[in-house]
Design a protein around this nucleic acid. Structure first.
Lengths: 83, 83, 83, 83
DNA sequence: CCAAGCTACGGCCATC
DNA sequence: GATGGCCGTAGCTTGG
């Protein structure tokens, strides 16, 4: 056993290692993304605009539901608080 | 002097105290806001809708500038990257 | 109460206005806090450490000790230097 | 190059697609990390302390020591207990 | 007890 | 090369 003060050291170590491994992967992917932005910039694209496009495309699924909410919202706000 | 290890203790204490004071004020105001929501809820208003209204009203000033950006954005995205 | 198109709209508006006012105050105070950090930084203080200090002062002494102990314990369990 | 309505749009689309793909991967990994924390928590580990451990392991030992010293120094300057 | 909104922190990028 | 601003992400608090 690798118990230290009532803590299973090897279990803890396993969690930590797995998380660190995944964080490295994540960092690697983030680096890839940065690379693509750099390449695009080198080819004359405006990265700021690209980021806006990405943001909009990410939002759109939500908006399907959200548009309905807003319609409802305005009906309520103008008349009565409760629907 | 209240120098400790080369640090002006009284100056540091002053900064810390001022920040803590302001944070208390801030917390107090946050509490007031919560109170108003609670009161509104007690009078039959839907707090979720209220929050949405507040969000929209906060966004609108930005949108004045942002609408133009988006128009430009889509022009670029569909045609050429550089304006 | 809950009359259509009448009083309730005004009540709602009142709540919204009061909340917006308080949110402005809150934002102003947050700005003041940032200012103080900036000033402190300009005078050679480490703002990151200042934030740690503020956090510790906000915690119960008992909890501070407990967190420290747990951290030591985990470090030992992982064979890390105890600092 | 920079032709209107032609090739460049496709190039942009390609960049956008590649980035979106990578962002999805990244999100997936983040989900995995959250899962591990959840599992660890389920087994009685304190995730907050685990995060501290991860942060410390990511820092240079020298910086860790420096931060600690500075914290001690500020505490002494303020007359706080040294923990 | 779970989900969501808000706040705060850290990292990235552009600027000087 | 360093600094400051900006954005995205993560943690905490609060409401349901």
């Amino acid at each position: 056993m690798t118990e230290v003060g009532g803590i299973a050291g090897d279990v803890l170590r396993s969690y930590i290692d797995r998380i660190e491994r995944l964080e490295e992967e994540k960092a690697g992917i983030a680096a890839n993304i940065r690379e693509i932005f750099a390449e695009a910039k080198g080819n004359g694209f405006d990265t700021k605009v690209m980021r806006q496009i990405l943001k909009i495309r990410k939002m759109e699924p939500h908006d399907v539901a959200e548009q309905d909410e807003l319609l409802e919202l305005y009906k309520r706000a103008l008349g009565m608080p409760l629907g």
